[in-house]
Nucleic acid binder design. Structure first.
Lengths: 148, 148
DNA sequence: CTACAAGCTCTAGTGAACTTGAAGTCAAGC
DNA sequence: GCTTGACTTCAAGTTCACTAGAGCTTGTAG
């Protein structure tokens, strides 16, 4: 019934570990007030914010991107239907792209590999040009899940 | 025209960095002979094997899984239509699952978030039970891309 | 008042898939 | 003979999204 939640309560209710919540806070994705003791106190709406983060991760966004999306939401009022709609467009496009790629791959599974044409020179399914190879150093993102 | 390719040639033709090829070899995904100098010499079919690896990664398999798939292919003969078909079944199912999840998420984008029900308690889209939270320590796999 | 749970900060580790860099070898061209 | 470039090994670094543990403080129940 309390207005403010402890980190443990948020963790239990969201299914996200307390350590992860601290990590999100460090990254600026969520915020907390502090009790006199120095303990975190989360206002209730943080639960929706955490839900949003989890959802966005499943869609395939990185925490950095999620942070940007959250920053773009109005800080002064509860985000409404209009805000979601704006957000939604970008995400839908992204999801559609990934689905399209997966369908292409599934088709290639029988058509292209099956027919024996899986050749790097000719097959667009394994074409270097399609790949994220030139995205510089560091780990390759899950191929195809990369932000475009 | 030569029968055997250097690592540089394979890298150029496959679009995969030489360092990655050495890494794949270390992991047992590909193999090479050695010239007298100690330099790697790849038989030509390695190109198809690399193409296979790249393809499988886009589908979402880890290198370890890819290694297992490759190990299951006949080592004595060129893999034929039958071998691909066997492989294909598992991958298709996997792709279908991921597509289904993405579609579910896309629907939730308007239905569930849009209507304001994005609540951790009630919404199955952000439901802790759905999540890979209990998969133990270590990094969370890209959520939803996890091998089932 | 004392346990003990829960919170705090900070540093370091994890796993996947590589890349980077150091230090050395080998082959070819000038 | 020397430089250049391609190759070798090996160790260490990178990103992402966290987790784990050390060492300390706070809050609560008996």
């Amino acid at each position: 019934m309390s207005e403010l939640l402890t980190i443990g309560e948020v963790a239990r209710r969201s299914g996200v570990a307390a350590s992860a919540l601290r990590f999100y806070e460090e990254r600026g994705l969520i915020a907390s007030e502090r009790a006199g003791s120095g303990h975190r106190r989360y206002p209730r709406p943080v639960l929706r914010r955490v839900a949003f983060i989890v959802f966005a991760q499943r869609v395939g966004l990185t925490l950095e991107e999620i942070g940007a999306e959250l920053a773009a939401l109005p800080p002064d009022r509860v985000p409404g239907r209009r805000d979601w709609a704006r957000l939604s467009r970008g995400w839908s496009a992204r999801i559609d792209q990934r689905i399209a790629e997966l369908e292409r791959l599934r088709a290639g599974l029988t058509e292209c590999i099956g027919c024996g044409c899986l050749s790097l020179d000719r097959c667009r399914l394994a074409n270097p040009g399609d790949r994220a190879a030139e995205h510089g150093p560091g780990p390759r993102y899950w191929i195809g899940d990369r932000p475009v």
